[in-house]
Design a protein around this nucleic acid. Structure first.
Lengths: 250, 250
DNA sequence: TAAATAGTGTCTATTAGACATTATCTA
DNA sequence: TAGATAATGTCTAATAGACACTATTTA
């Protein structure tokens, strides 16, 4: 389980921050010599997940330089000296997507020496769940080297970001039935079918419609908005809203 | 949620490692001025828990200097430049207790600026579960400023180590019924009553004897050693052993 | 034989899962 | 009225929890 700084922003700073790391294997020897005088760098990576095209997707960045040049990576960057870890994660998120006020959770800290060939890096990984509506607003800003991928159909990833994504998925799955974490992937109002799709995408398996609705409605965490969602040539679906007052019931 | 380095070992290095932090509030101003040239310190703290005197206890260290002088704290220290986080945690454990090969799990990383008045510190917290037998071996080595406390009867703690301990307890509770984490607090062979006590201490409530035994035995994770534990003037109890092959059944 | 803890079973309520039909809307 | 998705209930199996007595050992 490894990874490291990789947004364009982070890469720039990697150059200036550590007295210019040479991009050769000699870098390693250099650092070992100086190890007693050096401190590890601390970075924050942010796994940004959302629902796009009825798919659970993650935002990745294409690396433009060594190491892992040309491969896709989880966005991240250095933590400023006087900035909290969570603030650093929010800053990354803002830089990559422009959104704020989202669900943000610390996932795990990866710190094995040697996982980044440039220097010793300790990375605190956070993950973010974005609802699909906010995302549409920013869809246009996607650059060529930033792209969304289905979590179930990933390109080759830099560092061991594949493990980080698996770890994220497992965390999500584990929390699915005793928290309201899934609601963070939906806009304020949603249909039961949409909620079911979120569960199905995270668990990566089909759920029984009747049992799902029965169980969710029994908890009382949803309240009927009275509104209906009409789309296509069929019966419209009720729109529900999450009722935070009943969060404890899940 | 905060904390920081506090073993005697860590404290010594705190002096030499950060160009001698003055023990006054001026320290803060100094660091802010220099913030763009500085990196956070990275420390590892280790919550060491064990069963002692039929109680769930945690190992704490009395601080000998500012900040929080005289208060009790979770042991910890700096991460060496070429040492993994887990190795740093194991080293701390070894220094404090002399034991090795124990259950070790990363808990959470605390990194808010200002939680340590000396400098910016990012602390990765691990927790360790020790079985009671190993502990007895080392009981004699306890120094005056190292002591065990019941997790349900703690002294005033330095930093916000109280929150860290609560966090640890919650993690333990959460994992209790879908992992075999509790077994790490017991020696290789144990009676069902002893196992029940572990669950009761972690959950901090009484469990029904029949239901508990029924449930545990139904999983098949225990195997009867054939041996019995006789103590006191009453019927001896069967000794069981954890069967790792059946771990998935829990 | 008294004291102390080990060891055991039943009944009930709740929950999880399998499963198929009717309702309502638009084109 | 055809096509499409929404909405709904029953039965069964498994699980969780309440609850009290007998078994075995030593002093």
């Amino acid at each position: 389980m490894e990874e490291h700084s990789n947004s364009s922003n982070a890469k720039e700073r990697a150059q200036s921050n550590s007295s210019a790391e040479p991009r050769t294997e000699e870098a390693k020897a250099h650092h070992y010599d100086a190890s007693k005088y050096q401190r590890p760098s601390v970075t924050v990576d942010v796994v940004i997940m959302s629902l796009r095209q009825k798919d659970l997707q993650v935002l990745l960045i294409k690396r433009r330089s060594w190491p892992f040049e040309g491969m896709w990576a989880i966005p991240g960057g250095f933590v400023n000296f006087d900035e909290s870890l969570e603030d650093a994660a929010k800053r990354e998120l803002q830089e990559e997507t422009g959104v704020q006020d989202v669900y943000l959770e610390q996932l795990y800290t990866f710190g094995d020496p040697g996982r980044d060939p440039r220097t010793r890096v300790i990375t605190v990984v956070y993950f973010v769940l974005l609802d699909s509506e906010r995302l549409q607003v920013r869809a246009a800003s996607d650059a060529a080297d930033v792209s969304w991928f289905s979590v179930y159909d990933l390109p080759p990833l830099a560092f061991d970001h594949e493990k980080v994504l698996n770890y994220t998925l497992n965390r999500l799955r584990g929390k699915l039935d005793y928290t309201t974490i899934a609601f963070n992937l939906l806009p304020e109002q949603f249909t039961l079918r949409e909620l079911q799709r979120v569960y199905e995408m995270i668990l990566h398996k089909k759920l029984d419609k009747r049992n799902f609705r029965k169980k969710i409605l029994a908890t009382g965490i949803l309240e009927d908005t009275g509104a209906k969602k009409m789309e296509g040539t069929h019966r419209p679906a009720r729109l529900y809203r999450f009722n935070p007052a009943a969060e404890h019931k899940l």
